[in-house]
């Protein structure tokens, strides 16, 4: 055994491509499933939500305006980098979720594959969700999907990595940008993922990850007028109706949560992508 002291990581928030501490100065201890201390995580506040939404809004024009091919490559690059830090994620998932190494491996592999799956969607959305419409008149008419905008995502509380990736990747695949509140008790994989995102080609602000309490931050996200959609997956069940009501204040798109957390290992479908897409119909006369 080496007697060298290891250097511990300070887990921070991820906002606008940077890693600030919470403006509130708050942190909270994160334990493994046996109750052993793992690290202190920053406990984000409503002002951190505000900063994150600002960053996400700022990033939206660039990200939504990037070519679909480019977005696909960026998402694929996330998978590549995740693959490179596979061991670290396996260890963190195992510690956070209390699963055996083999199970943790399969979870991490699933998360990597999920990025690959969504990476492949970016340049197919318009083909699958768009249409040319044969209107009864001398017009060329087409419908194209466009990203909804800034999405607030309350990430799953149980599945710290695969669940997180499953709810985050579809947001940015569409060209929307995200403000994520990670699992409260299992936030470490989320922070490590943000380190991956920061060193990949995902532009700063496209993904913002806050650690802290969904119960505290959810209402601020749900009521924030500059947020266009909200995913309630990780919201406490008792708060979901209230969050939905708050979201109605600016007619947000709401992803309701099933009563229990889904099995994230199941193959994904397009339903999450659809929630972050608007349809724009364009008319133009045809003449000489």
């Amino acid at each position: 055994m080496s007697d060298r002291m290891s250097v511990l990581k300070t887990y921070k928030l991820f906002i606008g491509g940077a890693f600030p501490r919470s403006e509130s100065g708050r942190s909270y201890p994160v334990n493994d499933h046996r109750g052993n201390f793992l690290a202190n995580a920053a406990q984000a506040s409503r002002k951190d939500v505000r900063e994150a939404v600002t960053a996400a809004r700022k990033a939206f024009p660039g990200w939504s305006g990037a070519t679909a091919y480019n977005r696909g490559q960026v998402l694929y690059r996330v998978a590549e980098l995740l693959e490179g830090r596979r061991e670290q994620f396996i260890a963190e998932v195992a510690a956070s979720e209390g699963v055996q190494a083999k199970r943790a491996q399969s979870i991490v592999d699933g998360a990597i594959d999920r990025w690959v799956w969504y990476a492949g969607w970016t340049d197919k959305l318009a083909m699958v969700f768009g249409s040319s419409n044969p209107v009864a008149g001398p017009y060329f008419n087409f419908t194209m999907p466009e990203p909804t905008g800034v999405a607030g995502v309350l990430a799953p509380q149980q599945s710290s990595l695969l669940g997180l990736v499953s709810v985050l990747a579809p947001v940015i695949a569409t060209g929307s940008t995200a403000v994520v509140v990670s699992s409260l008790d299992r936030p470490l994989p989320a922070i490590t993922l943000s380190e991956v995102l920061a060193t990949s080609d995902v532009p700063g602000g496209v993904v913002n990850i806050l650690t802290g309490r969904a119960a505290e931050l959810g209402p601020w996200l749900a009521s924030h007028a500059d947020v266009n959609a909200i995913d309630l997956t990780g919201a406490p069940e008792s708060m979901r109706a209230d969050l939905e009501r708050a979201a109605a204040g600016t007619v947000k798109r709401v992803l309701r949560a099933p009563s229990s957390e889904p099995d994230w290992t199941r193959a994904p479908d397009i339903s999450r992508l659809k929630r972050y897409l608007e349809h724009k119909t364009v008319w133009h006369p045809v003449g000489v």
Binding site: N133, V135, A136, N141, H279, T281, W283
Partner: peptide, 9 residues
Amino acid sequence: RFDPTAPFG
């Protein structure tokens, strides 16, 4: 202009 084949919303 409106048409049943053209999505509106």
